[in-house]
Write a protein that binds this DNA or RNA. Structure first.
Lengths: 204, 204, 204, 204
DNA sequence: GAATAAGCGAGACGGTACGTCCTGTCTTGAG
DNA sequence: CTCAAGACAGGACGTACCGTCTCGCTTATTC
């Protein structure tokens, strides 16, 4: 059995943790993801490098947490709360609401670039990819799928449509435009995607 | 007026060029994109570092060319030929043909990882992004759009549908699954995407 | 007046003290003086780092004590006893006895290397140097000088010779060979030094 | 056969070499040997750390060369010239001349401390010790021994005295006083040592 | 056919960041 | 209070690459 010494997280300094995450966001904002270094984050946070290496394994992980903290602060989200789509009874309206929110997040001048960089890092770092899937993507899909299944039960969309594929038809094109910057990322585009996708699974 | 000396490409050593591109592919295959270095490529190719820096501006550019060379070798493609979708008259079948081919390229064990890494680099290096758009993405879209417009004229799909959005509904989800590794990338999935998208723009 | 809090030595753990000194000797034996660290000693002794820093100011001090303990254990010396040279009436024989003992100590495979390393540290740490002079060197000289003065009174050596210089002529070359490893450190060499030195101060 | 890549010394930058040695001496003068770091030397010399590690294996080696350069500059010594003792025919006077010079070197406020630190390092670093023996000590001894043999042939000292031991009786006590700072290091002391040693080997 | 000038292999150079190690201080909880 | 444990800020270590540079060598014109 492989033995590996782990730090005692009960004695972790909250002050350092926060300082590091703040410094990480600030460095990325100023220098961009590539030129942000662990050394730079440590210096800016007034922290020893080892304190970063003790709790994170890479720059990517630090920024993953930093972004998470930023989003939670902004949203005032309750810890551990599962995300959910609104359910007004109008499936089209509800999808548009959440897709527009996604557009807003992607185009946010503060978060957008970091998110893009992290999605980059995911291509290379399998640990980060796994974390992204379980902490970020899957909760989002679950929320979409729950709302879509409600719509199926309400007879608003085909009962036999694969909800997972529907989710991908909604978020795939949006993410594609965002990552490759191949077209404007607007609320109108979000609406179009919702409308067209619903047409593909609508009962007519 | 800024003056910049450019190397005389007529005196360029073809032997070195090929050795570098081969070495680059080999290094990525062995070590992965991240751990591949210009120094390593040079050493493996038996070439001075300057010879790489003289002709390329970054590791990304080298690999971009290396991949291009790999694909051309494999496909035996004629230089400068515009790609085009087949037109059998059956729009669904034609779309499936090309989407399946894309699936095959993405899942190719040799090319896939490099392509994914390059899509990473694109997020950071604007020159590379531009090059990717003009040399890779746009010719692809143009081919899709041409075929879709033909289908519109044939009355097979809605005449007022925005072909660009349709292209994104086809390739967006596919690329998403590929980049984030969130589900199996199969021919069946390609077919489903084609069918659902056509349903969204079908005439009823 | 500067105030400095000192630990209460009456509550000091003898168990820890011994464990630290043993661990220190063991680490030096295994890794050499340079690679021995306070952290390593603490870990090996099963002791907190602070317990070392509370009672010693440097690695050098710890090892000074550790060596002292080792020597006392070996010699079974009575605490506080002043060292003295034998006085058989034969000055040459007596000097040879003690010089040979010094040779034995220097060439002891366990103590030798640590002693050499400590002589290193003395060059840098004035507190340690002072301690070395008063606890180690001066008692030794005093013993030599007492014996030499007895020899002067007995008319065996020049009455006007400077005993301090004579001591240095005996121990200087020995220490030199030991520190710089410039020649074999043998009983024969010790004897030669005694004989030649006595010739220099002999009455003719 | 072990293969180890060695740098090409014909392409070595003399400018960097000199800058490093100068910076090393300056750092030691300002901070002392212990607080002098390779990083600090590199920064002060305006040189990359690797340039130091490429040509030297340790701080000690750098300073060994730095001191050597300092001495040569001071002495205006011809490269590769063997040191030799003066030979005026008066062995006592000649020995005093060179012992006094050694005293002067040891007490030189600029060189002394570095020399002491290096003699420290020698206790620990066998490579450095070897180098010290062959480049520093042995040439010195050879010079002494040559002069002493001449004196033997001239009938000034015992023909059967071991010249090596005589050298050690001259330099050993001097070095001892210097390293352990156990007494004043003066010309008078040098003279006493010469006189007493000669008395030990004199023909009377 | 010699002279000139480019590309080339090689690798030293000034730098920057890496990830590790250790220092000496501080904090926590057990005895 | 001392102690074991170990997190912390700090800083040097020695390594790996970066992108630039300089050195001879090989080639290919150009005179």
């Amino acid at each position: 059995m492989a033995y590996e010494k782990r730090p005692d997280s009960s004695r972790r300094s909250e002050r350092s943790r926060t300082a590091i995450l703040d410094a990480a966001m600030a460095q990325v904002a100023e220098l961009g993801y590539q030129k942000t270094t662990i050394e730079g984050i440590a210096a800016r946070a007034g922290v020893g490098k080892q304190t970063i290496y003790r709790w994170w394994r890479s720059k990517g992980e630090v920024l993953f947490d930093a972004v998470e903290m930023s989003i939670e602060e902004g949203a005032g989200a309750v810890e551990g709360e599962e995300p959910a789509l609104p359910d007004t009874g109008d499936i089209a309206a509800d999808l548009k609401t959440v897709l527009r929110a996604t557009v807003d997040e992607f185009t946010d001048p503060r978060l957008g670039p970091v998110l893009r960089a992290l999605n980059t890092e995911i291509q290379i770092d399998e640990a980060l990819a796994e974390r992204n899937r379980t902490r970020s993507l899957e909760p989002g899909w679950a929320a979409y799928e729950a709302r879509l299944r409600a719509a199926q039960e309400a007879g608003q969309i085909d009962a036999d449509a694969d909800v997972r594929t529907v989710v991908e038809m909604l978020t795939g094109p949006l993410t594609y435009r965002w990552l490759f910057q191949t077209g404007p990322l607007t609320h109108a585009y979000a609406d179009t995607l919702a409308d067209m996708t619903l047409k593909a699974v609508g009962r007519d």
